[in-house]
Design a protein around this nucleic acid. Structure first.
Lengths: 221, 221
DNA sequence: AAATTAACTAGACATAATGTAAAACAGAAT
DNA sequence: ATTCTGTTTTACATTATGTCTAGTTAATTT
């Protein structure tokens, strides 16, 4: 990782600018290259026998140069961020908004868990590799953390749906964090193991989540 | 990461061996260097403002050369493995054997959870960084996986303690994996968050673990 | 059709990391 | 004193990311 010693100017500020120039069809070509490199990068991440994820290799597969790749996405980190957001878009994460609007707390919880588990299960290997890379990349880690924080807000909203008057703030926070941990990629991925069925995983997560979220009541043993 | 093109010989097999040489005081010095570099590496990992963990830096802090470090531990991966095992030794993981010999299943579960949580809680930052590094280091990943497998055996043993006749093999495996996931560093670390008390964490994990391990009985809603 | 503009290419370069190799050096045992 | 061994010094190889620059190409404007 190399850091810029000086912020410098972002753009050379148009050296001459004599004549206006609105790129029309060229923008399309550029966008195509951008999409193609995104696909190539995803393919490379999904390729189990490709143990390294390098810009050179991505560029090669996309049919462009490494430098063009740097022009399109500013850095490796930003490219990975783009992949992740693309995955979220394809993985149906927009269902999350609808899930949060469920009135019944159990239904809301179930919808959230369902949405998340489907997302985690789809492109599981890629997600795992991306999160692995975040371990040694502070910027990427921050980007993933920001997205995870949205999930934490959702968990908070679910917990609120079950709230009873007597609960303290620290207990609410504990419930939220527990639900957050139970629905994390790491936990779900570990629970799924090599080849466990998604219904078994979902059932287990739901069962644990309800234990967390339903307030402890005095029970007769 | 550089791969050996040829396995070569591990040791030059004593080129001449004319005269026996039992290094007495020098062995001590060497061992001291080894211990000192281990401590230095642990310190470096614990140093929150040191964002990179390089052999150069470790050697510098230990007062030896980078090459000597390579002589002592063969590679960066092996050095990290040594740190991890040292942590386990200091973290009281030997209590695990006693925990497994508890007769009462609930006591056995409680002893395992207690042992693990104390271990995870101690040197939490270092453990997190080591596991993060394992993400981009196949050898280290394999080493940690082997140690985690021992934990899985323990989980299996706990699950067996609760076993009822009617349970299928797949259900046993699911219980084991769920307990394994609940007691993983990743889950516990996430649940602990920034500054949650260990008793809250332990209580939550125990509650979830018992839900998993106690066979589902027909319940009157 | 000619001039202009911006993206793309190709190649070199800087930096930093792991890991290897060989020769010189210094301490310890016989 | 000689020999053995671990340490040091120095150098080299490899592989990443990221930058820079000059040249090329193709679309757009006049």
């Amino acid at each position: 990782m190399l850091k810029k010693l000086v912020p410098a100017k972002k753009k050379p500020a148009k050296p001459d600018c004599k004549r206006p120039y609105s790129l029309g069809a060229r923008q399309q070509l550029s966008d195509e290259s951008k999409q193609r490199s995104l696909d190539a990068a995803r393919d490379l991440l999904a390729d189990s026998k490709a143990d390294t994820f390098g810009m050179q290799e991505v560029a090669l597969r996309a049919g462009i140069t490494r430098q063009t790749l740097y022009n399109l996405y500013g850095s490796k980190t930003k490219l990975i961020e783009a992949i992740f957001d693309d995955l979220a878009r394809r993985g149906g994460m927009q269902r999350m908004a609808a899930a949060m609007q469920q009135r019944d707390p159990h239904a809301r919880l179930a919808a959230m868990v369902d949405t998340l588990l489907e997302f985690w299960n789809r492109d599981r290997d890629i997600t795992r590799r991306i999160r692995a890379m975040a371990a040694s990349d502070p910027d990427l880690r921050a980007a993933l953390r920001a997205r995870d924080e949205r999930r934490r807000m959702a968990c908070r909203h679910v917990v609120d749906g079950f709230k009873l008057p007597g609960l303290s703030a620290t207990q609410l926070a504990l419930q939220t964090d527990a639900l957050f941990s139970l629905t994390s990629f790491e936990f779900v991925d570990m629970l799924a193991g090599e080849s466990r069925s998604t219904v078994e995983v979902a059932g287990t997560v739901m069962r644990l989540a309800e234990v967390i979220v339903v307030p402890a009541r005095p029970q007769n043993k």
